[in-house]
Each structure stands twice: as C-alpha cells, then as structure tokens.
Nucleic acid binder design. Structure first.
Lengths: 192, 192
DNA sequence: ACCTGAACACCGTTCAAGT
DNA sequence: ACCTGAACACCGTTCAAGT
C-alpha cells in the first residue's frame, strides 16, 4: 500500500499549486452540495483542467476525498481528544459521541472517509489512529463507570456512530438532532 | 408516478416468460453475492439476452430490485404482522426489531428497497404500507408499556433499524448478532 | 515538471430493424 | 408481441505528445 499526502508538497510549481487548489475547490463544492461521488472527469471539466492533471495530483478518488476531508477530520480528532480530557466519564462520552455525530452531519464526506477500509493518505491513517485512541480512552472509563456494557468494543462504537449517522441521513420527518444520540447513549448502558 | 408489477403478467408469451426468469435468476445471484448495483448491461450479457429485453421486462433498475426482493419483503411483512399479534408488548417489539434486522441481514437488497424514497411497483407500495401499519401497532403498545420514549415515531423506527443494519454491515471484528439489537431496544426505552 | 486531451473500456439507455 | 444489438452519452483511467 502506497500512501499519498493530504498537504501540498512544498516544491510545487506555482501553476501546479494553483491547479491543485482549483481541483480541491470544485471537489469541496461537490461535497457541500451532497454529491459525494466526486467524478474525476466532471471535476476536471469544472476546474477547467485536463483529466490527467486531476489524476496527477490525486491518483485516486479516495486520495482526493481524504485531502478535502482532512481539515474536518483534524477538527474531529481535536474534539475527541478534548472529550477524552473531561473528568466526568459521562460528560466525556456524551461529548465524544454527540460531537462526532454533529461533525459527520455538518461535513459531508467525513462519513465516507470514516467508513473506508483502506486509507490513501498518511495523514488520514495518523488521524484515524489518534481518533481511535481517544475513543478507546473514553470508552474504558465509561465502562468502569457502568455507562457502557462491557462487550461493546471501540470498533462497535465506530460502527454504531456511523450507523446512527446513516439513520439521521435517511429521509423522513426530522426529529430533534439529539434524539438518536440519546438512543445511543441509553442503548450502550448496561441493562438492569 | 407510474407503477409496475412484481409478479409476471399472465398473458406473457412463453419465451418472454423464460427470458424474464433468466433475468431474475441472474439478478438474484448478483444480490446473493453482495453486488447490489444490478448493472443492466451486465445482467443482459450474463442472461444471454439483448439489453432491450431486460429493459422491456424491467423499465427501471428499481423495478428489477423490487421484483427480486418481493418474496423476502413478503416474509418481512408476515413477520411484522405476527409480531404485532403477540400479547406481550415487549416480546412484540423484540420480535419485530430483531426479526427485521435478521431479515435485512439474510437477504441483501432488502435494505436498498426499504431505503428507497420512491417505489416502482404497486406490490412494494402495498407491502411497505402493511409493514408500517404493523410497526405502528407494535410501537403504540410499546409506548404505553413504557418500553419506548414517547417522542420516537414510526419513521424513527424505520431509520434506526436501517441505521443499525448499516452498522452491522460495516467491516470490523463481528460482535454477537444480537448486540446491536440490544443496544437499540435499551436505547429506545425512556430514560430514568 | 507539469499539462492536455485523445483514446479505450465500460455501463446506461434508446430505438430501428428484425422475427 | 417480443427480441436484438447498434448507437449515443457519459464516466473511469491511461498515456503519448506537448510546454
């Protein structure tokens, strides 16, 4: 597995940098509009570039996605780490899960990154590791405080959060934004 | 909105019926293998037919999907209705949610149908209505029994089940199949 | 070093021509 | 009535030719 970088290489020619930025802007606009497919041909056209240029900067659609999502992903990691710093395990858990759900809701494309089985960029790998560490830390304290049944793993937390985000995303009459968070928090608690 | 039918028209010529069955078999194989895209061209090729033949029988990929899923959807509705017949509201709720999750897990394609905003076939519309009626009935009794917080609607139940199915589908070390069902059941319960 | 865009593969969808 | 497959549009991806 050959990893790319989300930040622009320093030695980039000025025109290359400009083109790279154009691609990123178009891609960001797509995601902001809810179109998460990021079609390389279309993006090239809208950016006024040849397709090859897009592929030169982003060998993979996944690498483009991760690069666009990098900022938001960084925010998410910070959020998780600050949640892990809370004294109260319950506040920590609520901050972590609620913050993550809010973050996924606000930035389309983040969920797609978190659902990936393989990452294209080194920074994404590192951020994912940082995120999982924070989750692990919050989870362990929450378990000891009886806030989470013992059989729930870090991997379960990841899947459950993504699943509930999926649920929130489905069409239907919108309920309060915290409704599903509360379902999750109470559902994780050990029965009895 | 022009609706099709999931069952084969009675006046079908024998060769047409045979072709229709071939298409359905290939499509079923695709779904069973987890490929839910159902590419019309590929299906035609694998069925040994011209593409036009596939389109003649199934004007839309959605109509093909719904036709293939029809049997499983029927089973799901029966399951939901029998759950609605339980005396114990708790058993009813558990049977409904657990059964649905198991059903979605066993038959790939069902989730795609349930997530659709628009249906292509009349039978699907009817079955979806039947399903939602059963859910409504189970939900109302569960609410009265204090098993479900009052602000959770039928539409929420649909989204939550689909969300948890999505969670179960994500890769990762598999936990017990009932783990997420228990999270959901306890999460729905009113706090306190 | 970087950009362009033609080229090829593949899938979606339609429709004129066949039986 | 039904089937076929060529035809066209569109997106993915590569690469020879340019600057």
């Amino acid at each position: 597995v050959n990893l790319t970088t989300t930040s622009a290489p320093a030695e980039l020619r000025s025109d290359a940098l400009r083109n790279r930025d154009r691609v990123l802007k178009v891609a960001r606009d797509h995601l902001a509009a809810g179109r998460t497919e990021l079609p390389m041909n279309v993006i090239a056209r809208e950016a006024g570039l040849g397709v090859g240029t897009v592929y030169r900067h982003f060998p993979t659609r996944q690498s483009l996605l991760e690069t666009v999502a990098a900022d938001g992903f960084g925010d998410l990691v910070s959020l998780a780490q600050s949640a892990a710093g809370h004294d109260d395990p319950e506040k920590a858990l609520r901050a972590l899960l609620g913050g993550t759900l809010r973050c996924l809701h606000q930035k389309p494309g983040m969920a797609a990154v978190l659902e990936s089985t393989e990452f294209a960029c080194l920074e994404t790998v590192q951020m994912a590791a940082g995120l999982m560490d924070a989750v692990q830390s919050v989870l362990q304290r929450a378990r000891k405080a009886g806030l989470v049944r013992p059989n729930i793993t870090t991997s379960d937390i990841r899947r459950l959060v993504l699943g509930l985000h999926h649920a929130q995303t489905l069409p239907g009459d919108a309920s309060r934004p915290t409704a599903y968070l509360n379902v999750l928090l109470d559902g994780l608690r050990r029965p009895g």
